[in-house]
Each structure stands twice: as C-alpha cells, then as structure tokens.
C-alpha cells in the first residue's frame, strides 16, 4: 500500500497581538491508502488544526505535508481548491450544508464544481443509499440532524474521494442517530475504498478505526494500530 498522507516536522503557531501560541509541534506521521485513522485528544490538543492542515485548508508555520503525492505547501489557493475538489471529502460536526440548496443540490455540488454533467443521477443514487430518497427536494432546515448528516455523507462521497476527513461526525447527534450515521460512514468508506481520518473525542468511534493517533498539547503522544471493534465490520 502506498502513502496517501505524509506529515514531516509540522509546526503550527498562531499569533495574537504580540503573543504567539504554539498549537502543533514537530508532528510526523504517515498514513497509507485505505487506512482508517482516528485522531483523538482533549480539547485544545490540536486535533482540528492538524486535520485542517492535512486537508489543505491552511498553511503550516513550518514543516511539509504531502497529500496524494503532492507537496501542498507551495500550492496556490486555486491549486489547493482543485486538489480538495477532486480527491478529498469532508464531514463536519455541524453538517455544513448550504441552507439555500436542497438536499439533492447539496450533494451534487462537488461534481458540479468539477463541471461534470449528470451529477444529479449520482446524487440520487447516493441519497437513496443513505435512505433519503424521499427527502431529496427538502432544504436543510426541513431535515432532522441525522438526516442532515446523511446528506453530508452523500456529498462527501459523491466525488469518490481518495481521502475523507471527518470532524466529530456524530458530535451533534444523539446516541442512536449517531450510531446509524457512524455505520453508514464506515459502510460507504468500505464501498468506496476511501482513506478515512476522523477527529473525535468519542472513544467508541475511535475504536472502530484501524489506527488511533493521540494528541496532547500539540504533540503526538501515541500512534498505535487498533483492531477495530466488531461493530465496524
């Protein structure tokens, strides 16, 4: 298996006025294609920052990030946007659906950005797959939290991403709904053969991945293989 994401000596500092805050220090990691990885740690440990940097949403203070064989540090904003659009999927804690778009339109969006015709057919298939065939013309405000996250799942997979970043994907959902969404995410991930990186506090969710990276105060304190719990497979 080849390396899909490689992080070398990553440092990230934020400056506020005269003060500078070090969020990540000397991060090194390498993730192989098809892996499922959980990044865990307490609040403020740098999980989300690490994910944002790996997903080419921001620039590190120092260090190198290679995503899909491309060093992303020198890329322009447009080049990063193209990379994300073609090869990356996202799932967010607060769903992040566009409120003025219907469920179907939200799902079609990544393909439409690529200029691909017939995006609606693929979107319908995916929405059917996540159990929302009858809710396609509904706006996010007309859907429950679980339904919104299922729409987000469909959108995340529509461009057949090589790598999927999920930020607390069940953080805003109740237990049963969260479990349903979790299962759906892992099922789709398996079907599409996507590399999955989940940022979460949820130990149960983390236990369903094949590798758990623990962060504390901007440092990786452990990086261990995990035997996924049975609920996953």
């Amino acid at each position: 298996m080849s390396v899909i994401l490689k992080v070398d000596n990553l440092d990230m500092q934020y400056s506020s006025g005269n003060r500078s805050l070090s969020v990540l220090q000397s991060i090194n990691m390498s993730i192989e294609e098809g892996e499922t990885v959980a990044i865990t740690g307490p609040s403020g440990s740098g999980k989300t920052t690490l994910m944002g940097l790996c997903a080419a949403l921001d620039n590190p203070t120092s260090g190198a990030i290679t995503l899909l064989g491309t060093l992303i540090n020198p890329l322009s904003e447009d080049e990063r946007a193209r990379l994300r659009n073609r090869f990356v999927g996202f799932i967010f804690q607060n769903f992040q659906l566009l409120p003025s778009l219907t469920a179907l339109e939200n799902v079609m969006l990544p393909l439409e950005l690529q200029g691909i015709k017939g995006a609606d057919q693929e979107a319908v298939q995916l929405l059917t797959r996540v159990g929302l065939k009858d809710r396609m013309t509904h706006y996010p405000s007309q859907l429950s939290g679980g339904e919104q996250q299922r729409v987000a799942l469909a959108r995340a997979f529509i461009n057949k991403p090589k790598i999927l970043f999920a930020d607390e994907p069940t953080g805003n959902l109740d237990g049963d709904t969260g479990s349903t969404v979790e299962s759906l995410m892992f099922d789709l991930n398996k079907d599409f053969g996507t590399t999955l990186i989940i940022v979460t506090h949820n130990q149960e969710l983390a236990s369903r991945t094949g590798r758990i990276i623990k962060l504390r105060s901007g440092h990786i304190i452990s990086d261990e293989k995990n035997i996924p719990s049975m609920t996953t497979i």
Partner: peptide, 15 residues
C-alpha cells in the same frame, strides 16, 4: 460567510 467557507472547502476557487 459559512456558506462561502464551505464552498471553498469543497474546492471552489476564491475567484
């Protein structure tokens, strides 16, 4: 702002 950030996240160019 959130919608714009999401569009950007999904790969839309700033322009």
């Amino acid at each position: 702002t959130n919608s714009i950030a999401l569009l950007r996240c999904l790969g839309m160019k700033p322009s």
